[in-house]
Computed example of a mutant assay.
Amino acid sequence: MKFPEPLVEGRLIRRYKRFLADVRLPDGSEVTAHCPNTGSMLGCQPEDARVWLSRSDNPKRKLQYTWELVETSPGQLACVNTARPNSQAREAVLAGTIVELAGYPECRAEVKYGAEKSRIDLLLSGHDTAADAWVEVKNVTLAEDGQGFFPDAVTERGQKHLRELMAQVQQGDRAVLLFVVNHTGIQTVRPADHIDRKYGELLREACDAGVEVIAYRADLSESDGTPTGVLTLTESVPVILEV
């Protein structure tokens, strides 16, 4: 997927009230942008970091700008808009990029399911030889020394999703946890046991129960760290579950 318009570069002043971020534009003016991320954004909001905003001309919107990308360290970019990964995943599935999920002609989003009243990000069906695939998508942006970690804060919602996926396997379907790696500095993905030990335990339990865990990376930037404006998933990334 590609941003329809060029992004606007600025400098981060602060993020606050979870969904707001003040940004200084190159002309010295300051704007308040929508921050579409409910997580802690650990490591993704350095002081005075370069950030990139999308702009909307919709007069009904309260905020014209949306925070999309951040330079977490020199030359490394992360996509912090958690509304993007589902679209990235859907596009990659339909394009056949995610080889583990190839062969499904039907892809539905936000389908209600489960005893805990969840909504699955993607439900894939219509495969000639494989069962329906229930795909939960997670955005990975927490990077430490080339390793990506999920989650970046304790997530009871994420724990619930793992339980729901295990239940689908018991019913005879495929259940897949797809990590969308939206950080150019990440080479592997691990459960963040140091942040949410329960999530790590449940993830390993889910794997033992037959839930498939895969990760794919988005190519966000040029070699000099300049954003390409493209969020397309390009290659798989190893998922490491060993403690």
Score class of each variant (00 low, 15 high):
44 C>F: 10
47 E>Y: 03
48 D>M: 03
48 D>A: 12
50 R>D: 08
50 R>N: 08
50 R>M: 04
51 V>D: 06
51 V>C: 03
52 W>A: 01
52 W>E: 10
53 L>Y: 05
54 S>P: 04
54 S>T: 12
56 S>D: 15
56 S>N: 11
63 L>C: 01
66 T>N: 10
67 W>H: 01
68 E>H: 09
69 L>Y: 10
70 V>E: 07
71 E>P: 01
75 G>S: 03
76 Q>W: 00
77 L>K: 05
78 A>G: 00
79 C>A: 07
81 N>Y: 02
83 A>K: 02
84 R>K: 11
85 P>W: 09
87 S>N: 04
88 Q>S: 15
88 Q>I: 08
89 A>G: 12
89 A>C: 11
91 E>D: 12
91 E>P: 02
92 A>R: 02
93 V>N: 08
95 A>G: 06
95 A>Y: 10
100 E>R: 07
101 L>A: 13
104 Y>S: 03
105 P>A: 02
106 E>W: 09
107 C>T: 15
107 C>P: 06
111 V>I: 12
112 K>P: 03
113 Y>K: 03
114 G>W: 04
116 E>W: 06
116 E>L: 15
118 S>N: 09
119 R>M: 08
120 I>R: 07
121 D>T: 07
121 D>G: 11
122 L>M: 12
122 L>G: 09
126 G>N: 13
128 D>S: 09
128 D>R: 13
131 A>M: 12
131 A>L: 08
132 D>S: 15
135 V>L: 09
136 E>W: 04
137 V>S: 00
139 N>M: 01
